Simulated scan of single mutants.
Amino acid sequence: MNTRPDPIEHTSIRKLTRRAVLRGMASATLAALAATPPRLYAQHVAMGVVNPPVQLDDVWLVDQTGRKQRLNDLLSQHVSALQTIYTGCSSVCPLQGALFNAVQDRIPNIRANHPVQLLSIGIDPLSDSPPALHEWLMRFQAGPAWHAATPTLGDVDRIRTALSGSRLPLGNLADHATQIYCFDASAKLRWRSADLPRADEICDVLNALGRV
């Protein structure tokens, strides 16, 4: 008698197990954040609609495949949700990965005039190499609409400052924002979330920008 599991059923079980792990990681990270002094995130004060929209300075990025491209080229002709991460992070970044995993699942329900994409920007160029970015994406089951890329060391602070909209000190890597930044198809920053937004909130914004 053949007792080998059905391949489709086995794949489904693996996906369900992986999702349970991601949910567990998110719960553990939330518990850790609850014990974290809020002052760590005080430098990220700007949130909501960005008016007027902001065009970030164009910089070179290297993505998870080793390809080099301009930031605005990567954002152009897409409706994008962007987060900042670093691959060696064990505190908030796993939660950010789980968040984008949840947003990724909802992308097919977003009605947009342009492709919707997710972009994780590495902010530790010394460690966020293409292989490290690739491994980080695979950890959170990233699909073809989710990319990761790292700027040069000299451009990291410029990007973080422009994204935050704040003149306060950025702090060290461990203090980086858990905000999500949404861009329209002309590569302009149109919305900043609060720290740790809900997946549905991000999707609502992407839906709105997709009709611009």
Rank of each mutant, 00 (worst) to 15 (best):
M1S: 02
N2I: 00
T3A: 06
R4P: 00
P7D: 00
H10V: 00
K15E: 08
R19Y: 10
S27H: 14
L30N: 15
A34C: 05
P37N: 08
L40P: 01
L40C: 06
N51R: 12
N51P: 01
V54L: 12
L56Y: 13
D58Q: 06
V62N: 01
Q64H: 15
Q64R: 06
Q69T: 13
R70C: 11
R70W: 14
Q83W: 12
T84E: 13
T84H: 06
Y86C: 05
Y86H: 11
Y86D: 07
T87I: 06
T87Q: 02
V92W: 05
C93V: 10
P94T: 11
L99S: 07
F100D: 01
R106V: 07
R111V: 09
H114P: 00
P115V: 05
Q117E: 15
L119F: 11
D124L: 04
D124Q: 10
P125C: 03
S127M: 07
L137C: 10
M138A: 10
W146L: 04
G154T: 10
D155Y: 08
V156C: 05
D157Y: 09
A162E: 13
L170N: 08
A174Y: 14
A174C: 07
A177I: 07
Q179P: 11
Q179W: 09
C182D: 01
L189W: 11
S193M: 08
L196G: 03
D200I: 05
D204P: 03
L206N: 02
N207P: 00
